[in-house]
Design a protein around this nucleic acid. Sequence first.
DNA 1: TATTGTTATACTCTATAACTATA
DNA 2: TATAGTTATAGAGTATAACAATA
Lengths: 141, 141
Amino acid sequence: MPPSPPAPTLDEARALTMRLYRVADRARADFTAVVADLGLTSLQARVLLQLGEPTPMRALAEHLGCDASNVTGIAHRLTAAGLVERVEGRDRRVKLLRLTAEGVRLRAQVAESVAAGATVTAKLDAAERARLTQLLDKVLA
Amino acid sequence: MPPSPPAPTLDEARALTMRLYRVADRARADFTAVVADLGLTSLQARVLLQLGEPTPMRALAEHLGCDASNVTGIAHRLTAAGLVERVEGRDRRVKLLRLTAEGVRLRAQVAESVAAGATVTAKLDAAERARLTQLLDKVLA
DNA sequence: TATTGTTATACTCTATAACTATA
DNA sequence: TATAGTTATAGAGTATAACAATA
């Protein structure tokens, strides 16, 4: 008997992938619901979480995986909501987004609420959560 | 020493949740890219995968987690693409969406491509994938 | 009366292309 | 020339509200 192959079969990949998508889907739904209670869309919440430091709009677009032109509109809405402000960079072509005091406050609340409101991990005991963390780290490596 | 608590601390929940969101985010990006090559948006691909059987539009809305009014537009676009057709239910208020022959073909291709193109699980060996599958099942239970 | 699906409306997210200011 | 951001435009996804047909 040959050793078990290192690569997954297509069926195995499909089964695992579909589970992962279902979990991802639920995680997304949780996230959307939690941040909606704070008056934010998913994207706006993601931007807030990303803005631990003032960030060039270009870099933000790359992190979000969207075209740079979209960041203008996102920045407009967050600015109108009083959560971020534009700051000119040393390279004067660059504009950075920086959280306002209110933005900093809301960002902390987002992080808190998201962790508290995530139902996806509630069904696991401590050992299982530790093992899942380990596996996810490997996936993300 | 007391036994380890069954509930996660907020820090622990936050750490695991953030990992899960990062994995979910990557899974979503993989999915979007793969189905875009097949000419589909994420939502359209999700609908195709859901249509193993003819499904009332209302049920589809619930599965997608969106308002029922949206399904009309989604159905329009999939119908225009020749992938689904509307069928009247026995209750004549109900309309079901059913895949066309082309829809059935494309649905199979979506399932295949998604499994083949998922990079999230490529870094795990067989035992790790099995363990991850088990944990995800528990999360989804 | 209640439910299914549709339409109208408005907002957000998304990409492409053309533009400006700066490097 | 190349890069950062903006604007205009168009299409897709989302919710709310009002509506018609059916139960």
